[in-house]
Design a protein around this nucleic acid. Structure first.
Lengths: 146, 146
DNA sequence: TTTGAATAGTTGCACAAACAACTATATGCC
DNA sequence: GGCATATAGTTGTTTGTGCAACTATTCAAA
């Protein structure tokens, strides 16, 4: 058995994701304090659209590691907030291309700054080489299970 | 700036907790496949009650890193499933002491085995010393933000 | 001892996730 | 061309989360 060295408390933390939950909550509070009326989940969709917009909902599913109903409803809510719009594809009418509004483009800089700030607070006092190893392990975990 | 070395994809993963989400999903599937009719969140409450039962809902809040309404509803659902029962404290009538049923006691062995199995799959190919560093970093992150 | 603050728990609301079942469109094979 | 199958997206249901507002009980200080 390769890694059967789990003590109980640690097993619990790994499964429940205490650390990432804490990071997400802190970031959400920063959004709220800044008067940015979006959720972390909505931000995670915008995050990928800032990298490339005009992608399909299915591509958003893959990018955000969510299923199709989740993306449908996140896009619904982002549309209500006037942050994205669905545009039916000309070549394949099953597909919605998702585009950012000007309002959403304005959000990028502020929210990314708050995200970096949050991670800096989270990783304060952690040496950079340990952070690297941690990122590496989490990536392998994801690849092992996806 | 201590740890401002985030590349974008990594920032995203840290905040969204891709790895822990993947672990939780895998474990949920194992529960379902084994015919164990409980959610990961319900399991996380039972997990602490197996260590010590007869604790208050507030103590469950602290242990599971959830707020009071979340615990109220998780205990509601666990009670519907006949896995726990609320017992009003004699000394302080505001407090519910939460006790396990026999049915819940039977669940411990099987679910813990599936949880360990899941973590072994997740951490296959990861050297033990890197796992230790990862656990350490995640603990510091949690302590920095809580 | 009474009154105000703190604590334990519950309820309502909005948002999100997982699953199953559904519609609409496209594709490929005969 | 026509039908089976795959793909893109939507909807309904159950469960969970976070926040605010609420009730009940306890505690502490005037």
């Amino acid at each position: 058995m390769p890694n059967n060295q789990f003590k109980r408390g640690e097993l619990y933390s790994f499964i429940t994701g205490k650390a990432s939950t804490a990071i997400a909550r802190r970031l959400q509070k920063k959004f709220n304090a800044a008067g940015l009326n979006i959720t972390i989940e909505q931000w995670s969709v915008l995050y990928h659209l800032w990298k490339q917009e005009g992608i399909s909902q299915q591509e958003l599913c893959n990018a955000t590691f969510r299923d199709k109903p989740s993306i449908t409803r996140l896009v619904d809510n982002l549309e209500k907030l006037n942050l994205v719009k669905r545009v039916a594809s000309e070549s394949d009418r099953r597909i919605n291309m998702i585009y950012l509004t000007k309002q959403a483009q304005k959000l990028q800089e502020d929210t990314m700054a708050l995200a970096e700030e949050t991670l800096n607070e989270a990783l304060e006092t952690v040496p950079a080489d340990k952070v690297d190893i941690c990122k590496e392990v989490l990536q392998i975990v994801y690849d092992n299970l996806k």
